[in-house]
Structure formats: structure tokens, C-alpha cells
């Protein structure tokens, strides 16, 4: 055994994009893998569950966990990896805020299952069969993990030491986080390892963002053309830059599309959707009730938009009626 720090990477309810971003470290990945021992990483290496079970508590220096927690098995793995690791780092929006998969909290578990297995137009399921947690066939017992009612963020299940934000985080941020661990120069525990300021502060279009925005109409991207140099809000297109943490290199803006908030809120904000609601309201330049209602009604799906990445971590965590059967 070498004396190198041990690193593990694991995915929960995730899309795999956070893992791809690690692979996108490209040549830097070779530098990192030379400096550490990767002891568990299902996407790329053949170590198995039992190898992790066999490790001592605290044996792993740092574990990066991406994905939200939806299945019983994921919760179990997160808890086990927590025990085996000195540091647990939430890797990406899903682990951090629930991410896009957290939008499932708008619906009840039953609604998801029945849509998927009983209602879609391709389905042929006359008996309305749903997957079962346990199936016994000729004495062979096969289990499926539990599908929880609610999507949770990683820090709702285990203690999280640090967070790398973004859907996915940029390779540079991942590398920097790894280097912080290796060089023992981590900021205070609990920090989000990215920019402290809002995206607007580093946006290439910020110079065209008026000091006082005055909006009398919100336009949707499909029905309008815009100036590819100007601030989206100045053009009447909703951009969540003012309510979003910077650090992504303004990826979407550079592709001429508005921000959707994947880096989550800045440190002083508890609820991303509430924050987005209030900044957006503040730039509407109308106070006549009828006109106001018309403008606001034209925002498509404000709940889904403002909580695009942060529903599971929001104050209400999702739809209030979710748990009711």
C-alpha cells in the first residue's frame, strides 16, 4: 500500500454528468490520479461494494458524492461512505440542492410510478403491474431498493464538509477542490467551493445591465430574438444571474442563453426560489394591479423555473400535498 491519500467517488440519484466532469479534467486527471489512490469509483474502476465495507472508519481521506438521495440504497451508501471518510464533499447541484431530479418533489411518489408504468402511451400493462420491493420466484428472493417519497439533498442525510456547486461543476472547480484537499488548504468547514459573488458580477454582459432594470414584459426565448451582446434582463428575458452564485465561467451566457441557476444561491440566501421571486419582482416597472397581474402571469412556470435546481433544499422542500395520499 502506498501512503497516498485515498479518494472515493460515488453517485447517488445522479445523471453521471458530475462524473464526466471529473473525466473532463483531461490531462489533469493523470496528475490527480498520480497523487492519490482512488479506492472506489464505479464508473471507471472495478472495486465493489464489499471493498468499501472492508475499509476502516475514516480510512478514506475524502469522498466526493454526487447525486441526490432518493433510493434507500443511496442513503445507505452515503451513510457508509460518511463513516469511512474523513471528509465528505457534495459534488454538484443534485447532492448540493437536490438538482433537477429534486423537481420530482412537485409530485407524489405514486404519481411518478403510475405515469411511468401505467399511463404513458407506449405502455402495455393491462393489469397495472408496478415494480415490487421483493419478488420471490421458486425460492429465489430478489429485492429492489425502496423508492422514497421525497428527494433529499446529501446534507439532509449525512453531514457534509464541503460543496462543489454546479450542474455539473466545471472541471477547474473539481480540480481546485482536490488540490485543496491534497495541499491541506481548505477554507472553513461548510464552505461552498466557488465564487462568493453572484454570476452577474463576472458576466461578460454585465456592462449592458442597467443599474435600474425596468421591465414591463417578460418574453420567452422561443418567441423572441435578442441582441447577443446585451444583458438578458435588459432584453426582457428572465435570467437568474442576479440570484445565482458565480463560478461557472458564464457557460450558458456565452452560448447566448440565459442562466437557470445551477450554481445555487449565494451564501446569504436560504431559499433560491424565494430569492429569485423577489429580485424578479423588484425589476417589474408596473404597480397597477391589472397590468402587474398580466406581466406576472406571463412568466411560464415560475415555481419550476426558480426552483429548477433547488427544490429539495428549499424551505418547503417541494409540494405541500406531496406526502398526502
Amino acid at each position: 500500500m502506498t501512503g497516498k491519500p485515498k479518494i472515493a467517488l460515488y453517485w447517488c440519484s445522479s445523471c453521471g454528468g458530475c462524473e464526466e466532469s471529473v473525466i473532463d479534467l483531461a490531462e489533469d486527471l493523470l496528475t490527480v490520479t498520480a497523487a492519490v489512490d482512488i479506492v472506489f469509483w464505479p464508473v471507471a474502476l472495478d472495486f465493489k461494494y464489499k471493498d468499501v465495507v472492508a475499509m476502516n472508519d475514516g480510512e478514506i481521506t475524502a469522498t466526493l458524492i454526487n447525486g441526490a438521495i432518493r433510493m434507500g440504497e443511496q442513503e445507505h451508501m452515503a451513510k457508509m461512505l460518511r463513516k469511512k471518510s474523513r471528509l465528505v464533499i457534495a459534488h454538484g447541484s443534485c447532492a448540493h440542492l437536490g438538482g433537477v431530479v429534486g423537481l420530482a418533489n412537485f409530485y407524489r411518489r405514486e404519481d411518478l410510478l403510475s405515469r411511468l408504468y401505467q399511463e404513458v402511451p407506449t405502455i402495455n400493462n393491462p393489469q397495472g403491474i408496478l415494480p415490487q420491493l421483493e419478488t420471490i420466484e421458486s425460492g429465489r428472493k430478489v429485492k429492489l431498493p425502496d423508492f422514497h417519497d421525497t428527494v433529499k439533498t446529501l446534507d439532509q442525510v449525512v453531514e457534509v464538509d464541503y460543496t462543489i456547486p454546479g450542474c455539473p461543476p466545471t472541471p477547474e472547480l473539481i480540480k481546485e477542490a482536490m488540490m485543496m484537499v491534497l495541499e491541506d488548504r481548505l477554507p472553513p468547514r461548510g464552505s461552498v467551493l466557488a465564487e462568493k459573488k453572484a454570476l452577474c458580477d463576472t458576466c461578460p454582459r454585465r456592462d449592458s445591465k442597467p443599474d435600474k432594470l425596468r421591465i414591463t414584459e417578460f418574453k420567452r426565448v422561443y418567441e423572441t430574438e435578442w441582441d447577443p451582446e446585451k444583458c438578458f434582463l435588459a432584453e426582457g428575458i428572465i435570467c437568474l444571474g442576479p440570484a445565482t452564485r458565480g463560478g461557472c465561467n458564464a457557460r450558458c451566457i456565452n452560448a447566448n442563453m440565459p442562466c437557470r441557476g445551477c450554481f445555487g444561491p449565494t451564501d446569504d440566501v436560504r431559499d433560491q426560489g424565494a430569492k429569485s421571486s423577489s429580485f424578479l419582482a423588484s425589476i417589474i416597472d408596473v404597480t397597477d394591479k391589472e397590468a402587474l397581474k398580466k406581466i406576472v402571469d406571463a412568466i411560464p412556470d415560475p415555481g419550476g423555473l426558480f426552483y429548477r435546481y433547488g427544490l429539495a433544499s428549499s424551505i418547503l422542500k417541494g409540494k405541500m400535498t406531496r406526502g398526502r395520499s
Binding site: 412537485f106 426560489g273 424565494a274 421571486s277 423577489s278 424578479l280 419582482a281 423588484s282 417589474i284 408596473v286 404597480t287 394591479k289 402587474l292 397581474k293 406576472v296 402571469d297 412568466i299 412556470d301 415560475p302 415555481g303 419550476g304 426558480f306 418547503l316 417541494g318 409540494k319 405541500m320 400535498t321 406531496r322
Partner: peptide, 30 residues
């Protein structure tokens, strides 16, 4: 009442937020 806010426009900001927030609340089942 509009025009009477001691901080000039605090209540009008509230009015705007109220309309936006109501729509968000309805997606949250409230």
C-alpha cells in the same frame, strides 16, 4: 396604503413580490 409607506415604495415592492410569490406558492400546492 400606496403613497403612505414611510419608506416611500416598500409597499409597492411588496405588491409586486406578492403577485410573483402567489404563483410560486400555487406550484408548491399552497
Amino acid at each position: 396604503h400606496p403613497g403612505d409607506c414611510h419608506y416611500k415604495e416598500g409597499n409597492l415592492q411588496t405588491l409586486k413580490r406578492y403577485y410573483v410569490l402567489k404563483r410560486v406558492l400555487s406550484t408548491l400546492g399552497i
